[in-house]
Design a protein around this nucleic acid. Structure first.
Length: 106
DNA sequence: CTTTTGACTGAGT
DNA sequence: AACTCAGCCAAAA
């Protein structure tokens, strides 16, 4: 099991209707300074369609970069389908939708 | 092998 | 509030 697997496991744990940041996932995997690795793991995501990478956003709650599994529009649609609402700037209200795990372990 | 780059973040200016 | 700098570490050139 490589580091990627840990990232995928955490991402898969994100409950529907919630989102998590790269840093948060990194922290959950035990490496709070490896947010970039999380991003890289998802970039190399061999489990596209299996790992809900659309629930992973940057610290500001906005959709990552200009590309994704199909495009930011698809990601937005998927998140709205999860019950998440975007603001005027297509930013997610982290105050409401940020995933707040009870424990930083497992 | 060395250098650049990147789905990031937090601190500093 | 917007921009820059520095850390992190793996893959690609």
């Amino acid at each position: 099991m490589g580091y990627f697997e840990e990232v995928y496991e955490v991402v898969k744990k994100i409950p529907k209707g919630k989102v998590a940041t790269y840093g948060q996932i990194a922290a959950l995997t035990g490496f709070p300074r490896r947010a970039r690795m999380v991003g890289w793991a998802l970039h190399a995501n061999p489990y596209r369609g299996i790992v809900p990478c659309h629930r992973v956003v940057n610290r500001n709650g906005e959709l990552s970069g200009g590309f994704a599994f199909g495009g930011p529009e698809v990601q937005k649609m998927l998140l709205e389908n999860e019950g998440i609402i975007f603001d005027e700037n297509d930013i997610i209200n982290l105050d409401k939708y940020l995933w707040k795990p009870h424990k930083y372990e497992e």
